[in-house]
Design a protein around this nucleic acid. Structure first.
Lengths: 153, 153
DNA sequence: CATCAAATATTGATATATCAATGAAATCGA
DNA sequence: TCGATTTCATTGATATATCAATATTTGATG
């Protein structure tokens, strides 16, 4: 089984490494915009764009991040003037998160370029390959799943 | 090409999410050992086990980590008494990194269990699927590659 | 209604990634 | 050999992940 161990190690490693490189690539591309924003901040910004008045817990679920991370990312986005926290009248524990005018403009301005980045990442992969990749990743996700599984389309 | 866009987004997201869950799973399993060590620390430890007297730059290359990260991970491993930095007589900028006796014993003790974790992660995947996965990830890596590509077996 | 449990956001601690700057040492080129 | 460049390890700063603890508020149940 020694060769299997090798292979498993390689797969684990390759997956991590690929994601690391993807993130690096996306960040470097994003940096060329001089927009002063990180990939994770963009992800959060984009979700807010699509789901106005979302709460932080929901945001965390959709972004697959911890609420602590969301708090800190929102702090940064708020400092940049891109989002705002509005008190929820019906539940005073919550904020309703929205884009500011500047935030909306920011998303609108940069969305096409950023969609381009994502296309470049999977460039040259056929639909079949993408489907196969998704299936395999789904199997891995089931192997490592704990508690409530979250569903991908 | 419009139909692909949604798909692309999912693939990027799914990859990141899968790796995140893999890491979480591996860490939780590691935690059951009560060994007080992280996945990344284990990775570094294992490399030192295989390549005694390695330098920190080499370690960084093999582990695909920044030298800054290596410095900090080694600091922690050294505090735990698992590794030692020895001055390189031939190049006084370098350390030669080695496991201590405790470090060797630690690796020997936990290696089988940790290999088991890797095994569980890719459980149920056929060799063909693993090969396909590797090929697809390799394509993505090439799409996002910058500078010197690093080679996987 | 009072209490107790759960949800929400925040904060703190620790680990890591990444980038930039630094000091010390080695090497290279004229 | 001297000076410039490069290499090595470290440190600092910032961003994020994760886990734990907390205050506030809500909801549920007696």
């Amino acid at each position: 089984m020694k060769s299997n161990e090798q292979l498993n190690n390689v797969v684990n490693f390759l997956l991590e490494q690929t994601v690391r490189q993807m993130r690096g690539y996306a960040q470097r591309q994003l940096d060329t915009l001089q927009a002063g924003i990180t990939v994770d901040q963009w992800v959060v910004l984009k979700i807010i764009d699509e789901r106005d008045k979302i709460s932080q817990v929901e945001l965390a679920q959709v972004a697959h991040k911890d609420t602590a991370s969301i708090t800190r990312i929102l702090d940064l986005l708020q400092k940049k003037g891109l989002i705002q926290r509005i008190d929820d009248e019906h539940d005073r524990r919550k904020y309703l998160i929205s884009l500011t005018g500047a935030g909306k403009a920011f998303v609108k301005l940069h969305l096409p370029f950023i969609n381009g980045i994502r296309e470049q990442i999977v460039q040259g992969l056929s639909k079949e390959e993408i489907k196969t990749l998704k299936d395999i990743l789904e199997k891995i996700r089931q192997n490592v799943a704990q508690g409530d599984p979250d569903v991908f389309p």
